[in-house]
Design a protein around this nucleic acid. Structure first.
Lengths: 154, 154
DNA sequence: TATTATCCTATCAATTTAATAGAGTAAACA
DNA sequence: TGTTTACTCTATTAAATTGATAGGATAATA
């Protein structure tokens, strides 16, 4: 059953605000593409870009950052490309999301890895936003911790 | 136990990207402030702004949108202000978040209320992003459905 | 040595956010 | 009736971010 919104208004966006960045979206697709390969042979950026409908130049920078953060290996020259370093079963979504999208928490004051006090908040202990976002963080963490790259295939 | 990030990099942000907008943050604080009042007498924007450390002009526009979406009532002139229309127990976070922050889903292709096909996706059924974001949506929905404004107080 | 494909830096337009300014409107009250 | 109060509305703004593109440097292969 659909939980229909009670109020109209908010005509100002019709999904003008996709909260997941294209960077993350493309990164996830690329990782999945590599995880779906039969062997571990390097795959060229151009192949991934074409098959997944991604701007090649943009994808270049994303794969580069995935390599620098330890998810991918690369090989230059002919026959080169990118390949997964670990088994898809061992690639946790928590780690992938933190590298691609950034902190999992929606506010710094509930972040495990990137904690910061909110500059404008008087008291964290009685802050309603803190209270709600803590629950949201835990719910998201639960999902990301229980999903690996292997779970995204097919 | 803290789930420490395995990889460094991503030096480029130290929470430069708080995913929760200030609009939502301020809106939640204002709603909580009103819900904490003893009686249902109107509270002035200026009082909320001062007590919650919020830019008054910005708060004006937020409260206005909360009124237009049916959460608040208002009264002009002396002794005027904003007041909650419903009992805090009946104000679901799903509804509040949709008005303040927008769709709960991180991608349009998994949105209940704002569904849209992703322009760049070939096949939703086999899309890894769709698969993951569906789980994330459900987890978030679970939190927002099980929390009312009353749950945010103290 | 020529070719291939990753690596790196720089730039760009478009969008969004958060904040501010200022005038308009309606209610209360003396 | 007229003044004060406080919400209502429109417009503008700076700053930041996103997504995309260009061009050349580097390294590996044949």
């Amino acid at each position: 059953m659909v939980d229909k919104g009670l109020y109209d208004v908010n005509l100002n966006f019709l999904y003008l605000r996709p909260m997941l960045s294209k960077k993350t979206k493309y990164g996830l697709k690329a990782l999945t593409y590599l995880a779906s390969q039969k062997d571990k042979a390097p795959v060229q950026i151009s192949e991934i870009a074409k098959c997944e409908n991604i701007s090649q130049k943009f994808l270049e920078s994303i794969l580069l950052s995935l390599r620098k953060s330890g998810f991918l290996g690369s090989k230059k020259g002919k026959g080169g490309g990118y390949y997964l370093i670990k088994d898809p079963n061992e690639v946790l979504m928590t780690d992938v999301m933190r590298v691609l999208e950034g902190p999992i928490s929606m506010v710094p004051c509930v972040s495990l890895n990137f904690y910061e006090k909110c500059a404008d908040c008087r008291d964290e202990a009685t802050c309603s936003v803190n209270k709600l976002m803590l629950k949201v963080r835990d719910a998201n963490l639960e999902v990301y911790r229980n999903n690996t790259l292997a779970d995204l295939i097919i």
